[in-house]
């Protein structure tokens, strides 16, 4: 397995994780993944910028940061539309990326140092609130996001395009005059992607279908005006035509500041159980599953303003 092959797959993996791990939305949320059911009031708009720093690889120096920007607008009493862009920055230096020696006993290949930063996807979404947490027994909303992602790796001479659609169910229950907020979100990301080699080494397209499930739970309490503190957990598991990948359970604290004009949410996650801890060496994972990214920590930050 060549270093360029590994690098290509690493980049595609990060690229895909951008889609999997980031919901492009702009409306204020207390959590990283567990969206609230509220939509923006009709005629109101917000923009948000988000980033996620992925870490915890097994060896070498590795940094991956995904970023996104989104615009959201309320178009009805209970309906919001979102449009967003996303990309990533990745830096790797002398990184064997957790690989084990192969069957012949040869040492794990070292990926040459490289750095990439790319805009890699566009996304649109629509959210409809069905029940309000303020006037009904609990809040409930449905959301659908559609994604297009592209990726070109000059060194490996490949291009990839991926299409995705992600239906999401959002539940919210408030207590103590709406200062204690419990949320639950279930989403399934259906994706179809193809990789093709570019000239001069034209090869057959490699296409695949997959679906990733990502349920999440969050609880946050407003401990002071403008400030909420809480905890969030989410689980990621993906099924492909070649079988399912190991799931990962993440958990961590979150803090949120919300003002009249802007808000910010910071979350830190640690992998409590899952793939990078218990999985076999990653070379096999990448050979069979190009979109796996087994990071062990995630720091997520989003800042938004209302226009």
């Amino acid at each position: 397995m060549s270093a360029s092959f590994i690098k290509k797959n690493l980049l595609v993996g990060v690229c895909a994780a951008t889609i999997f791990s980031t919901s492009v939305f702009a409306a204020e949320s207390l959590f990283a993944f567990t969206l609230g059911v509220d939509t923006l009031p009709k005629g109101q708009s917000e923009i948000a910028l988000g980033m996620a720093a992925l870490g915890g690889k097994r060896s070498g120096s590795f940094t991956a940061v995904t970023f996104s920007g989104a615009y959201e607008r309320g178009v009805g009493d209970n309906l919001s539309l979102t449009a967003g862009l996303g990309g990533f920055y990745i830096n790797s230096d002398d990184n064997a990326f957790g690989m084990a020696p192969d069957a012949s006993g040869a040492p794990a290949p070292i990926i040459p140092a490289f750095s990439e930063e790319r805009l890699s996807r566009v996304e649109i979404g629509v959210q409809r609130r069905i029940l309000s947490p303020y006037t009904d027994y609990f809040g409930f909303a449905v959301r659908t996001d559609a994604t297009f992602e592209w990726f070109e790796d000059d060194s490996a001479n490949t291009k990839a395009k991926q299409y995705g659609i992600r239906p999401t169910l959002i539940f919210q229950k408030n207590f103590l005059d709406d200062t204690l907020n419990l949320g639950a979100v279930v989403s399934a990301n259906f994706r179809h992607g193809c990789q093709k080699s570019a000239a001069p080494t034209i090869g057959p397209d490699i296409c695949r279908n997959e679906v990733e499930f990502r349920p999440s739970l969050g609880a946050a309490y407003r401990f002071a005006p403008k400030w909420n503190i809480g905890a969030e957990t989410f689980y990621r598991k993906k099924y492909t035509e070649n079988g399912d990948s190991p799931g990962s359970l993440f958990i961590g604290p979150t803090i949120h500041y919300g003002d009249k004009r802007w808000y910010a949410t910071a979350s830190m996650f640690w992998q409590a159980a899952g793939s990078s801890i218990y999985a076999p060496p990653m070379s096999l994972q990448y050979a069979n599953n190009l979109t796996r990214l087994a990071n062990e920590t995630e720091f997520r930050f989003r800042v938004g303003v209302n226009l």
Partner: peptide, 18 residues
């Protein structure tokens, strides 16, 4: 895109609008 552009953008937006 450059990280510098992204970082500056994220830092400046809420300050300007607040």
């Amino acid at each position: 895109l450059t990280r510098r552009t992204l970082t500056l953008g994220m830092a400046a937006t809420p300050v300007a609008l607040s």
